[in-house]
Amino acid sequence: MALATRTDRRPSLARTLWVSTVGKKTVMAVTGLIMLGYLVAHMYGNLKIFFGLDAFNEYAHWLRTMGEPMLHYEWALWIVRVVLVVAVVLHGVCAYQLSRRDLAARPSKYVHKRPRASYATRTMRWGGIILALFIVWHILDLTTGTVHTGGFQSGRPYQNVVDTFSTWYGNVIYIVAMLALGLHIRHGFWSAAQTLGVGNATRDRVLKATANVLALVLTAGFVAVPVAVMTGVVS
């Protein structure tokens, strides 16, 4: 009787969703949109550096006090961080597993070497790796100060940003990562819309245009900061 009970037990909905290809694509779409929302807010905050030292440092301080007095100091910021870490991990795991399934489904190489996807699609995997490595470097540089050059100063984010982009390698790492981000967003937003069933014959053109605009605006917005430091606009 015990064996029969175990045999008749059905997997949970969450388990069924997780193991299916459609489920993994849905998880990637949802987590991708969460990260996209964060990127828009993060870019907006970064651009405050153009309003001067006080404005940028006050914004960085506000990030740690938002939600007060209901939430304690940095609680809201840590909630955002935890949500982002979960989203990044789920996104990365699903991307890896889907990639392995794709390779397993076609173990032999194609006879015709004709490109089967756009440039952005074909660089999504490498772009994801570049972004993952960049996130680690970015945290160690401007959050913990572990790899920061010029002497990391806690509580002085404006000067820390200027220090980072006063080095050629800091600019190269950041700009290359932002270009990879633009390609990732361009393809990812479109893929998420298709996975979530938003696209159709009449909306596809608008969705593609939106993906292009988002990719362009976010890339330009993020790259504007190191370029401003390099050219002396921000110093």
Rank of each mutant, 00 (worst) to 15 (best):
A2W: 09
A2P: 02
R6N: 11
T7S: 07
P11Y: 07
A14G: 03
V22F: 04
G23I: 09
K25W: 13
M28E: 11
V30W: 06
I34L: 10
I34T: 12
Y38R: 05
Y38T: 09
M43E: 13
Y44M: 09
N46I: 00
K48G: 01
K48L: 13
F50I: 05
L53S: 04
A55N: 03
N57G: 08
A60H: 14
W62A: 13
L63F: 05
L63Q: 13
R64G: 08
R64W: 00
R64V: 00
T65P: 01
T65F: 03
L71T: 08
Y73L: 15
W78Y: 13
V83N: 01
V85K: 06
V86F: 01
V89G: 08
H91R: 04
A95G: 11
S99I: 01
V111I: 10
A117L: 07
S118F: 01
A120I: 15
T121S: 13
R125D: 05
W126V: 10
G128P: 07
G128V: 14
I129G: 00
I130L: 06
L133G: 09
L133D: 07
F134L: 06
D141S: 12
L142S: 06
T143G: 03
T143S: 14
T144E: 09
T144L: 11
T146D: 06
V147H: 10
H148T: 02
H148A: 04
Q153R: 14
Q153S: 06
R156T: 06
P157L: 15
V161D: 00
V161H: 07
D163R: 12
T164H: 12
T164K: 15
F165G: 04
W168T: 13
Y169T: 10
V172L: 12
V172I: 10
Y174S: 04
I175Q: 02
A177W: 08
L181A: 09
H187Q: 15
F189D: 01
F189I: 03
S191P: 00
Q194V: 07
Q194T: 08
V198W: 15
V198Y: 15
G199T: 15
L207K: 09
L207D: 12
A211D: 09
N212S: 09
N212R: 04
A215T: 10
A215S: 13
L216M: 11
L218Y: 02
F222N: 04
V223I: 15
A228H: 11
A228D: 10
M230V: 14
G232W: 02
G232M: 01
